[in-house]
Design a protein around this nucleic acid. Structure first.
Length: 818
DNA sequence: ATCATAACGCTTTTT
DNA sequence: GCGTTATGAT
């Protein structure tokens, strides 16, 4: 046998045997797991099992190295060994442990693998699944978020950039506080140039890898005076952070990229260190993150990115879809694999989602399919107003629960957080347990910021921001004038505020306050000493006590909740201590700085989940409601008329629809109160993009609004009109302005005509006390009837099963009157 | 220093 | 409509 024949056969047998370890995967998934070398683009549609692929690919790399993706035989291989492998192939079973030895080609040590995600949640999931696949070994894999990976690198090497290794991380509100201060001192009117905007501009500058100087240079060329102001603010802001030994979220990535570009040896170190780099959710990476990734993977070029161009919904935060669209041009010889089989949703749901996303231009082009069957059609419900919309959703949830599903199987998604209010109200009234994700975050609460500020001030003596936050909280008789002087002296001397405090006895303007300041300084110094010598949780209690913070809270209604939160933070500390070896204050602060509420989303409690569509990405639920399917809400008013924005909204719609496994219900309200004004909206254009074969729409519409007759009862419903005029209206006003300025004219006769007979088959009429028989629940008595628009919610006490709530329209078919 | 009132302004926000 | 923030008065 000549050498090339030998190599070919050896490689083929090796690949076949390796692939048998991954028998649970479909062909495309397997191909992805076995392609280990060079750049790889994995286009993974929603629900296509991409995490599974990622896990298996890592397992493969650790177990076999590049064995599955290598065309040559090892030089030591003999014909006997080839024969052994081919025999194993013939045998049809998985390789034995001895045969496996022959399959490996430079297997990678776990720590040579970097798997980057965006969220802690995704990182945790990756870690725990790697752990179940690999055991202990998984600990060493760098499976973490962009930010935590960069913090880890910076903690080692940041001194090259002039910060210290114990730098502090500033979150968004810290950054805003610093910027507000900067603008104030520059005498910039916040109304003309809000701190938020400036931070946004700085963020974009950092994304383009522009230093304050480079940004200022570019600003000089333009004519916008605000950009010039922003450039000056950038310089000052960055200087302050550096003085405080602090980095903001953007800096974490920006400084890492700077570090790697400016320090060849550090860069080479990491390029050597990591053999394989994987990036999840690649469609959401920014230019800067792309740079980071290509630097880290630059040595060997083994970079695998996983993403879905159709799920890119963070353009407004600097994500650029170009990264994924142009991957194959940027990385030469890239291979690309599409995962289009969806394991999550049934056919009609995918049909609807595919139909919507098809309207976007500039896609890689993918079409999800499933073998789970057609399933139920998505359905559109149009309510009169947001209250009725909320009631409908609540009723549907009860109906689903009566049918045997759990509350946790339901999710309600909406475009903006403000929409959650009415839904919450309806859910409360119906006694439905729910959880709202997002809104005010735990670590943004004032009391949590306060106590963490104490921890930061103890940890980092230069952290003026946190120091100033707590210096007079609880009140220590240190007034605003003293604080101003402190700030001024500190900036004059270019020293931290804390060192000015220590000198205060020698500074004339501070002499009077010196005693109080020194008391405070002694407190911090004492705490600093203690923090080094005692366990973190004990130190936390000591801090709360010595600072008098807890004692000063008192026991008002609100304060009880605050104390609860402070205790909650302690349980965070304890669980951090259990998880991390060698827990330190610095480590804990890192952890909480990079932590969000979404991470705590656990399905331990059986509640309906309510959240924005953005927050829902990556999640799945048997039942999904998408509320507020109205032009002006979704797509949002700001995106109408802007092609790019509209496409992003459409992707968001695609994300929302593909969260549903079995039941998908879209709801809209004809009228909605928003920002204190009533608006009439048309049903979202996205609904129109779904062909009738994949959606059930009401054929008729009611016009008059229902009224509540008492707390629980809707008024009788009124006459119906065909929904037909909507489409013709759209043709009459093709690029109409939003319906906010020009309410949709509706044929609303007042007083409304007598109720017309509903078109469908008449509803079974039930009243309290009726005896009924249900196909699956058996005999029962009607306890309560709540008329709903076009339907009714009936509560039945079944013999045996007890009380159940049913929607008459759906349950009617299973009910007979006795 | 702390509270009260007016005034604004408002998508989404993985870290 | 509501929640946050700035300002002024006690």
């Amino acid at each position: 046998m000549d050498r090339s024949e030998f190599e070919r056969r050896y490689a083929a047998a090796r690949k076949e045997l390796i692939s048998r370890d991954f028998a649970g995967l479909n062909d495309m998934q397997k191909k992805a797991a076995l392609t280990t070398e060079g750049p790889l683009l994995l286009l993974a549609g929603a629900g296509s099992g991409k995490t599974t692929v990622l896990i298996n690919r890592i397992v493969n790399i650790i177990r076999y190295g590049r064995g599955s993706d290598c065309a040559t035989a090892p030089s030591w291989a003999t014909e006997d060994e080839l024969a052994e492998l081919e025999a194993a192939v013939e045998r049809g079973a998985r390789a034995t442990e001895e045969e496996r030895e022959l399959l490996r080609v430079e297997p990678a040590e776990p720590w040579r693998i970097l798997a980057i995600t965006f969220t802690n949640k995704a990182a945790d999931e990756l870690k725990s699944r790697l752990f179940s696949a690999l055991g202990e070994k998984a600990e060493d894999i760098w499976a973490m978020t962009f930010h935590s990976a960069c913090v880890r690198i910076l903690r080692r090497h940041i001194e090259a950039l002039g910060y210290t290794k114990s730098f502090t991380i500033y979150d968004a509100s810290d950054a805003q506080a610093v910027m507000k201060r900067v603008l104030k001192e520059m005498n910039v009117d916040e109304k003309m140039l809000p701190a938020k905007n400036v931070l946004g501009m700085i963020g974009r500058a950092k994304d383009a890898l522009q230093s304050p100087e480079e940004y200022a240079e570019a600003a000089e060329k333009g004519y916008d005076p605000r950009v010039k102001k922003a450039a000056a603010a950038y310089k000052e802001y960055q200087a302050r952070l550096k003085n405080a030994d602090a980095v903001d979220f953007d800096d974490i990535i920006y400084l890492t990229v700077r570090l790697l570009t400016e320090n060849k040896d550090v860069c080479e170190y990491y390029q050597n260190y990591f053999k394989y780099v994987l990036v999840d959710e690649y469609q959401d990476t920014s230019l800067l993150q792309y740079r980071l990734v290509s630097l880290l993977a630059g040595g060997r070029g083994n970079i695998c990115v996983v993403g879905d161009d159709d799920q890119s919904i963070y353009r407004f935060r600097g994500a650029t879809i170009e990264n994924i669209l142009s991957f194959e041009e940027t990385f030469k010889n890239a291979r690309s694999i599409k995962l289009e089989q969806n394991y999550r949703s049934t056919g009609h749901i995918l049909g609807a989602a595919n139909a919507v996303i098809k309207n976007n231009k500039g896609r890689k082009g993918k079409e999800l399919w499933t073998d789970l069957g057609d399933g139920e059609k998505p359905r559109l419900y149009v309510a009169d107003n947001e209250d009725e919309e909320a009631m409908y959703i609540a009723a549907k949830v009860l109906e689903g629960v009566a049918g045997g599903d759990n509350f946790r199987d339901f999710a309600v998604l909406y475009r903006m957080n403000a929409q959650s209010n009415r839904l919450e109200y309806a859910f409360k009234r119906q006694g439905i347990p729910y959880r709202v994700i997002g809104g005010v975050r735990f670590f943004d609460r004032a009391e949590i910021k306060d106590v963490t500020s104490y921890l930061c001030a103890v940890q980092n003596p230069a952290d003026d921001l946190r120091l100033m936050r707590i210096i007079n909280n609880p009140p220590r008789g240190i007034g605003t004038t003293t604080l101003e002087t402190l700030r001024q002296k500190a900036s004059e001397a270019g020293k931290p505020v804390f060192s000015v405090i220590l000198d205060s006895a020698h500074i004339p303007e501070l002499k009077r306050a010196s005693a109080k300041l020194m008391d405070f300084a002694r407190l911090i110094v004492e705490l600093r000493a203690k923090s080094a010598s005692m366990p973190l949780d004990e130190f936390y209690d000591l801090m709360l006590d010595k600072t008098g913070y807890l004692a000063a809270l008192g026991d008002g209604d609100e304060n009880i909740a605050r104390v609860e939160n402070i205790k909650e933070l302690k349980s965070n500390i304890v669980s951090y201590m259990n998880g991390d070896e060698g827990p330190t204050l610095a480590g804990f602060l890192d952890e909480i700085a990079l932590y969000t509420d979404l991470d705590s989303l656990e399905d331990k409690d059986n509640s309906v989940i309510m959240m924005t569509m953005h927050a829902a990405k990556g999640l799945e639920f048997p039942w999904v409601f998408v509320a507020g399917m109205e032009d002006g809400i979704f797509p949002s008013i700001r995106s109408i008329g802007e092609e790019e924005e509209m496409e992003e909204e459409r992707r968001l719609c695609y994300v929302a629809l593909t969260r549903a496994k079995k039941h998908l219900i879209l709801t809209a309200a004809r009228q909605r109160m928003l920002y204190g004004k009533t608006a009439s909206n048309m049903v979202s254009r996205f609904v129109d993009e779904i062909p009738d074969e994949h959606i059930d729409k009401p054929e008729e519409r009611r016009t008059r609004r229902s009224r509540y007759e008492d707390d629980d009862i809707f008024g009788e419903w009124q006459s119906r009109f065909p929904l037909g005029e909507r489409r013709s209206q759209r043709e009459a006003y093709p690029e109409r302005q939003s319906s906010w300025e020009r309410p949709t004219p509706r044929p609303t006769p007042r007083p409304a005509p007598r109720p017309a007979a509903p078109a469908g088959k008449p509803l079974l009429s039930l009243s309290v006390g009726d005896r009924i028989r249900h196909k699956s629940f058996g005999a029962g008595e009607v306890v309560k009837v709540v008329p709903m628009p076009g339907d009714a919610l009936v509560t039945v006490n079944f013999e045996g099963t007890g009380e159940k709530r049913l929607m008459l329209k759906t349950a009617g078919a299973f009910i007979t009157k006795e």
